[in-house]
Every structure is written in structure tokens, then in C-alpha cells.
């Protein structure tokens, strides 16, 4: 096995993991605290990509795209929370699934009307569109390194928020025992809206960051939201720490699986069979992983018993 390839795939895995963390953090918060299954979280990621891409294409400034798109999408998120989702907190999970699926249908169709049907192709910001040499002669994308960096900064920020602030204390209380926060005498409505806004902002940030790599497309949210759900389930619902660890593990499994599964399988079965089976199995890998985790730990890695 080549070390350069292995290290590069680990970097790819971390980059994907960081992206999953940005998406899953918002999900695990809304789920853990408000008990809301928000399928439409991926929609905010998509809107982040579209709005960020549009601002970037207009102004030519990626920084401006980040600074404007994230609050705009967070605003849209808060608006849906106030108008629609707020009334669903006390309702059955299935009602939430149905309503948020309605939101997905609506927004996916809306972006097809507002933007070109096949979405937008976004260039990389010039100053990040290059590669840097790392050890073992690896040339790695500066842009992807930037995503890893931003994700880690956000992770540290989230850690500080959750452990060092009053808001974080409420979040922890809510995630451990939901009825607790009702007893704490805080303005619950405001707390929920605030948490929802933070989650949406993280999702939108992920969208803006990924737009140059993936482009902006209708339906891009659903492709990743299922994996984000896998992440929060593996991590244990409501746990930001679990979410971070699970996101990195999932990213690494996906990236390394896609790269080395045929080699690993070939140790056990004939090479031909291994090469034929590897692509199918690597598609299933994260689901197999989740099933195994839940088989041994039905509450996920860091889940609390009350959920």
C-alpha cells in the first residue's frame, strides 16, 4: 500500500467528515432539544449553495458570499421555524417528517423555477484554486484544506458554545432530559428559535463552502441529509461531541472504503470477485457500519437513555 495515497485518502475522509459535521450538528441539536425530525435541513444546505453561488457569481467575492448567504439562509430557516415548524414540536415524529418533506418538495421545485433547471456551476475562488505540497510528495487541494480548517474552527466554536455558555448549558440540559428546560424558566420559544437558527446557519455554511466543488443543484440536500441522519444516529442524538466523532468516522469509512475495499476484500475472496463486489459494498458501507453500531449500542455511541 502506498503511504501517499493512504494519507491523501485520510485527508479526503476528514474533509467529507467535516462537511457531514457541519450538517449533522444542526440536525442533532434540533432533534435533541426540540425533538424535531427536520428532513428539510438539507434544503437549507441547498439554499446556502444556491444563494452563496449567486452572490459569488455576481460580486466575484467569495468572502462576501459567505458573509451574506449564511445569514440570509439562517433568516429563511428562522422564518420557516416561526411559521411552520414551531407548531410541530409537540407533535408525532411522523407529522414532522411529512411536513418537512412538504418543505423539501416546495423548495426543490422553487429553486428550479428561480435558477436554471440544471443548477449553477461555480468557479473556485482564484486564491484558493491551487494545490500545496505536503509530506510524501502529496499535492493537496488548498480549497479542501480550507474546508477542513473551517470545519475544525466551527467544531471548536461549538464546543466552546456548548460547554462554556449559558445557552450551551441549556442545550446540554435539553439534550439530556427534554422536560428539564421547561422547568428552568427560560424563554423556551426564543431558545428554540435561536438553536434552530444556529443549526440552519451551519447547514448554510456547508452549502456555501461546497458550492465550488459540487455546484448548486436542486435535490442536493437529500443526497447528503440521509448520511447526516446516519451520522447523528451513530453519534447518539443530541450529542454534539458524538456527532463530531461519528462524522469523522463516517467520512473516513466512506473515503477509505472507496479506495481500499477491493484490496482488503481480495485478501479473503478471489481478486475478480473482490473487484466486482467492492463498488456495491462500498455504497453500503456506512449503512452496514450504522447497523453494527446500533446492534451493539442501540442508543448510538454517545446517546442518552432518555431519548
Amino acid at each position: 500500500m502506498e503511504w501517499a495515497l493512504l494519507i491523501e485518502q485520510i485527508l479526503n475522509g476528514i474533509q467529507f467528515g467535516v462537511l457531514l459535521f457541519l450538517l449533522a450538528a444542526g440536525l442533532t441539536l434540533t432533534f435533541g432539544i426540540m425533538d424535531l425530525v427536520n428532513l428539510a435541513h438539507g434544503t437549507m444546505y441547498m439554499l446556502g449553495a444556491f444563494i452563496g453561488a449567486t452572490i459569488f457569481l455576481w460580486t466575484g467575492s467569495f468572502i462576501l458570499a459567505l458573509l451574506l448567504a449564511v445569514p440570509i439562509v439562517a433568516g429563511i430557516g428562522i422564518l420557516t421555524e416561526i411559521t411552520t415548524l414551531r407548531t410541530l414540536y409537540q407533535r408525532h415524529h411522523l407529522d414532522q417528517v411529512l411536513a418537512t418533506f412538504g418543505l423539501i418538495l416546495f423548495f426543490n421545485e422553487l429553486v428550479q423555477v428561480v435558477w436554471p433547471l440544471d443548477g449553477l456551476t461555480v468557479p473556485f475562488p482564484k486564491y484558493l484554486d491551487s494545490t500545496v505540497p505536503l509530506m510524501f510528495g502529496i499535492e493537496y487541494s488548498v480549497y479542501r484544506l480550507m474546508i477542513i480548517g473551517s470545519g475544525l474552527i466551527v467544531a471548536v466554536g461549538m464546543w466552546a458554545l456548548v460547554t462554556k455558555t449559558r445557552l450551551g448549558m441549556l442545550i446540554r440540559a435539553g439534550a439530556t432530559d427534554r422536560t428539564m428546560i421547561y422547568a428552568l424558566g427560560t424563554n423556551i420559544r426564543l431558545l428554540f428559535t435561536l438553536v434552530f437558527g444556529i443549526g440552519t446557519a451551519l447547514g448554510a455554511l456547508a452549502g456555501v463552502l461546497m458550492a465550488p466543488i459540487l455546484g448548486a443543484n436542486s435535490g442536493m440536500g437529500e443526497q447528503i441529509i440521509i448520511i447526516a441522519f446516519v451520522v447523528i444516529v451513530i453519534g447518539g442524538i443530541g450529542s454534539v461531541r458524538g456527532c463530531f466523532i461519528a462524522a469523522l468516522i463516517t467520512g473516513l469509512i466512506d473515503s477509505l472504503g472507496r479506495s481500499f475495499l477491493d484490496v482488503i476484500l481480495a485478501l479473503f475472496i478471489p481478486v475478480n470477485a473482490a473487484e466486482a463486489a467492492a463498488p456495491a459494498i462500498s455504497s453500503m458501507l456506512i449503512y452496514i457500519f450504522m447497523t453494527l453500531i446500533l446492534f451493539f449500542k442501540p442508543q448510538g455511541l454517545f446517546g442518552s437513555q432518555t431519548q
Binding site: 479526503n12 487541494s141 455546484g215
Partner: peptide, 21 residues
């Protein structure tokens, strides 16, 4: 030879690293 998940996979970082190698 890499066969990627369709239509979900839209990031080819892993495959491109293999091409480089």
C-alpha cells in the same frame, strides 16, 4: 477502474487521489 454510487455521489476526491497515485 472505479464505479461510483449513482446518482448520489457528486464528490470524487477519493477517486481522483487514486488516479494521481
Amino acid at each position: 477502474e472505479d464505479m461510483t454510487k449513482w446518482p448520489d455521489q457528486i464528490d470524487w476526491a477519493s477517486e481522483l487521489s487514486k488516479v494521481k497515485a
